[in-house]
Design a protein around this nucleic acid. Structure first.
Length: 422
RNA sequence: GGAGGACUCGCAUAGCGGCCGAGUGCACCGGUCUUGAAAACCGGCAGGUGAAAGCCUCGUGGGUUCAAAUCCCACGUCCUCCGCCA
């Protein structure tokens, strides 16, 4: 949610931001218009209410005829107050609906444009030359079968398309990745969290996933709860309606949870394998910090993501995501894309967003220091999304016979240096 | 799923339909005293909005009333008991 005061004073900044995202610019003027009406309605209600409060007190003190006369007056006034109150309520609701539709302000450094207009910040590592190694790389589906690690056929049989089983080495790989991720998060000052994945509408709404992303969210209608697509949701909402002490900031959480995504509108995309699935596990970093420290914190989250990729010994690039491809809560977003040999392309494996005060304002999360109570900033970043990391590891570290070398960092957790054929 | 009980300012509690946005204790912050500390004493101590007056908030939402923390209804959360079950 954008600060309405900021919008009143800087409508052009908000307009420019909406335009950069390719979103509704007129919304800004609609909001300004209704804001005027809203303030007038509040004023009218408050004046009437004040009058009523005064009159009510005098009724209590009066007796006899005087009281009867005052009561008649008071009754009339009560009707007016009620009318003014409901009018105010309606307009406030309308105004809120409109403000909630605004996306976060763009960071001025974020590249402008659509999905294709990202800026590549750096390349780390060099894609392996399989010609030099003398064999054709197998894709992760084939490797998964040879290793007894991934079973997409039975996944489809039991749960439909985009479903899979991780078995044997595949399951062990998940445990190793999660353990390594949590261990590094602990080192970096994160509190490990296993959050609820079933959340109520206010948590979902507050984190901004019921806007443009709503069609990708699973909803359990009968109980009015949602399945989260990322533990960002329960981690952000964890401190909903709270005031955090300034000296505890930044507060960092590493959430491990299953993530559920409908993947509506992606028919035909990544249908093979486990690149794009309905359910997967992920370790997510989440940080609450002071707004003036958010940019630095964002860089730190990105660095921890890079550290992870480096430890997995996978070539990747970092991109600065363009304005039109940001989520509604993000002011800026960096993705890390890992090299996938059989696709000859870099594919997104992690993503980190700076949501500044946008999410916190929706969730009513603030912090308090000597100067008062202020909106806090929130940031999130993927430490590891299991299936995509498994794809990257299998494909990049495969041998000609289908076995896969385990990156050194994972060996202690996996208890082996090589995944063998079954 | 069934039966009861509770929900007030960080915690614990008080609260008659008007004198309650709300008393008390603990915790916390500042001060006096002290070499320092404890104790004692003095002061402060929920949030939002507003330039201010004021307005709003006693789980949430409705209702009754001139007036609701207080009465009524619904929902939510927590606790106890019964049933079922990892």
């Amino acid at each position: 949610m954008i600060d309405i005061k900021f919008l009143r004073e800087n409508p052009d900044v908000v307009r420019a931001s909406q335009k950069g995202r390719g979103e509704n610019v007129e919304l800004v003027d609609q909001i300004l218009a209704i804001d005027e009406i809203k303030r007038a309605a509040i004023n009218e209600f408050e004046l009437l209410r004040q009058e009523q409060n005064v009159l009510s007190k005098s009724v209590g003190a009066a007796k006899g005829d005087e009281k009867t006369a005052l009561l008649a007056n008071a009754k009339e006034l009560a009707d007016k107050v009620k009318a003014a109150d409901s009018k105010r309520g309606e307009i406030e609701e309308q105004a809120k609906q409109l403000v909630m539709q605004l996306s976060n302000l763009l960071d001025t450094e974020a590249p402008i444009g659509g999905e294709e207009d990202f800026v590549t910040i750096e390349h780390i590592g060099t894609p392996r030359d399989f010609t030099k190694d003398g064999f054709e790389p197998k894709d992760h589906v084939e490797l998964g079968k040879l290793l007894g690690a991934i079973d997409t056929e039975r996944g489809a049989k039991v749960a439909g398309s985009r479903s899979y089983y991780l078995t044997g080495a595949g399951a062990m790989l998940e445990f190793a990745l999660v353990n390594y991720a949590i261990q590094s998060a602990l080192k970096n000052g994160f509190t490990p969290v296993i959050p609820p994945v079933l959340v109520n509408p206010s948590a979902m709404e507050g984190t901004g996933f019921l806007g443009q992303a709503a069609e990708n969210v699973y909803r359990i209608e009968k109980d009015d709860v949602y399945l989260v697509g990322t533990s960002e949701v329960p981690l952000a909402a964890m401190h909903m309606d709270e005031i955090l002490p300034a000296d505890k900031l930044p507060m960092r959480y590493a959430g491990y949870s299953s993530c559920f995504r409908r993947e509506a509108g992606t028919y035909g995309k990544d249908t093979r394998g486990i690149i794009r699935v309905h359910q997967f596990d992920k370790v997510e970093m989440f940080s609450f910090c002071k707004p003036e420290e958010a940019k630095e914190e964002h860089k730190r989250l990105l660095q921890w993501e890079k550290d992870f990729l480096n430890a997995m010994e996978i070539p990747y690039r970092v991109i600065d995501v363009a304005s039109g491809d940001l989520g509604s809560s993000a002011t800026r977003k960096f993705d890390i894309e890992a090299w996938i040999p059989t696709q000859g392309a870099y594919r997104e494996v992690t993503s980190t967003s700076n949501c500044t005060e946008y999410q916190a304002r929706r969730l009513n999360i603030r912090y308090k220091d000597a100067d008062g109570t202020k909106a806090i900033a929130t940031l999130n970043g993927t430490l590891v999304a299991i299936p995509r990391m498994i794809v990257a590891i299998l494909e990049n570290h495969q041998n000609a016979d289908g076995t896969v070398n385990v990156p050194a960092a994972l060996q202690p957790f996996l208890g082996t240096a090589k995944l063998e054929l079954v």
